[in-house]
């Protein structure tokens, strides 16, 4: 298991940089992960998606698909891809400190 230092704390990550233990995450880490992945600043709209992803994962044990993100997060699919050009569910999960979603849809 790899470890990296984020916002002054050492956290465990997988080979692609997703946090292995969501409880090690905090909001300052989110800003750092976002910058490292090409998003300079997180807006309220980014946070709406990130919080929705993280809360759904913590409550249900799995992250929502892009389809259900588009339907239930309050951010439509077009905007999801504008906010997270490198993949909304993947990137929002990474920034939100939860494991990489494994769905195909």
């Amino acid at each position: 298991m790899n470890t990296v230092t984020l916002a002054g704390a050492t956290v465990e990550v997988d080979a692609e940089g997703f946090l292995v233990q969501p409880e090690q995450w905090n909001e300052r880490m989110a800003e750092e992960i976002a910058r490292a992945n090409g998003i300079e600043a997180l807006t309220d709209r980014h946070w709406q998606v990130i919080s929705f992803m993280r809360n759904t994962y913590l409550q249900t044990g799995s992250a929502p698909s892009v389809r259900s993100l588009g339907k239930t997060s309050g951010v439509p699919i077009k905007e999801l891809y504008e906010l997270f050009p490198k993949g909304p569910s993947k990137l929002a999960a990474k920034i939100g400190g939860i494991p990489k979603p494994r769905g195909c849809i």
Binding site: S65, V66, R67, S68, G70, P76, I77, K78, Y81, P85, G103, I105
Partner: peptide, 18 residues
């Protein structure tokens, strides 16, 4: 059940994804 949309919705979703 697997969250795979019907074809019309799926095609629209793919277009919306850019």
């Amino acid at each position: 059940k697997l969250d795979i949309p019907p074809i019309p919705e799926f095609v629209e979703m793919i277009a919306d994804s850019g």
